[in-house]
């Protein structure tokens, strides 16, 4: 594995292999000293051109868990504010000794450009509404830990699929692992053309609840215009929000997922968010473990390479 830019780069065997590696790193995380020396001497650059707390911290936690050094920044307050280009920022970090690039950017394809310009192994930490492959691995891993397998599991991804890189990555990961996926949203929140997507589509959450193993809730992304295409957020919450009543109609084993951050009271009510069948915190923990697995796979090949002159 040279880069992780899209979940499309991974077939089922690769996903399973990364998840079983993540399982080992999960055990590491629970040790008194949650660290292994696997990437000692490697420097991971976290380049976040969009506000992010959880994903950036998760990558940094994962890097430190592998004994890698971390150089990180968020766009606000960096040279980007002075007009430096993405290319120059990436080349500068490489010149400072970064070996692995972790890139979050508001524009689709930006991590791929960074990979091309720097030649460094690059992880896409979210690009526009395109891909967020490590989130999909975290979600897949969390579901594997819950159900043992995804074959035949019925998953509804509910909400702003149109603006969601998580949904795009999850659809690919879940279906590759044998799950069936239904996208549930009012039409303006669906991608305009779903040709070739291995999914079913519905705008009636209530019709599906009894037959679901997983409800995956998405945040209405107001910052990407998600709210402006809806009549009102309140109406959305009434039709698509998951509350205790809807949770009660789902099978007893069914679980709730959310990539965070949650809008409590919109797509999820507080009692569901805090419910034992809500896997949000399992997803967070799984996220660190799969990011350790990904960085380990990318970094292992770099060991012994001469540092950049």
């Amino acid at each position: 594995m040279r880069n992780l830019l899209s979940i499309r780069d991974l077939d089922r065997v690769r996903i399973e292999e990364l998840c079983s590696l993540a399982d080992e790193f999960l055990a590491v995380m629970r040790r008194p000293i949650p660290q292994v020396p696997a990437l000692r001497g490697i420097t991971v650059a976290t380049m976040f051109f969009e506000p992010s707390t959880r994903t950036r911290l998760s990558f940094e936690r994962a890097a430190r868990g592998l004994s890698a050094d971390v150089m990180g920044f968020q766009a606000a307050g960096s040279s980007v504010a002075k007009g430096e280009s993405l290319k120059d920022t990436a080349l500068t970090l490489r010149a400072m000794g970064a070996n692995i690039m972790v890139v979050r950017h508001g524009s689709a394809g930006a991590p791929k450009r960074v990979a091309e310009w720097t030649g460094c192994p690059t992880v896409n930490a979210g690009d526009g509404a395109n891909q967020h492959p490590t989130q999909a691995l975290a979600d897949t891993f969390a579901l594997l830990r819950r159900f043992g397998r995804l074959d035949g599991i019925r998953i509804a991804i509910v909400g702003d699929v149109r603006h969601s890189r998580v949904a795009r990555s999850d659809v690919e990961a879940f279906t590759r692992m044998g799950a069936s996926v239904t996208l549930v949203a009012p039409p303006p929140l669906l991608p305009p053309d779903l040709t070739g997507w291995p999914v079913a589509v519905s705008d009636q959450l209530d019709d599906l609840l009894e037959e679901l193993d997983v409800v995956y809730l998405l945040r209405v992304q107001t910052e990407r215009g998600g709210a402006t295409v809806l009549p009102s957020v309140e109406e959305y919450a009434r039709r698509f929000g998951l509350d205790a009543h809807r949770l009660g109609r789902m099978p007893d084993h069914a679980v709730v997922m959310h990539p965070g951050p949650m809008n409590r009271g919109v797509e999820i009510t507080p009692d569901v968010a805090d419910h034992p069948r809500c896997l949000v915190l399992d997803q967070v923990e799984a996220g660190v473990a799969v990011r350790m697995a990904v960085l380990f796979r990318l970094g292992a090949g770099l060991k012994g390479e001469a540092p950049h002159g």
């Binding site: 509404a129 779903l194 070739g196």
Partner: peptide
């Protein structure tokens, strides 16, 4: 173009 490619890439399209 707003279509299957824009939908897959999550980039806003022009119909």
């Amino acid at each position: 173009h707003e279509g299957s490619v824009s939908s897959r890439l999550g980039v806003a399209g022009i119909p």
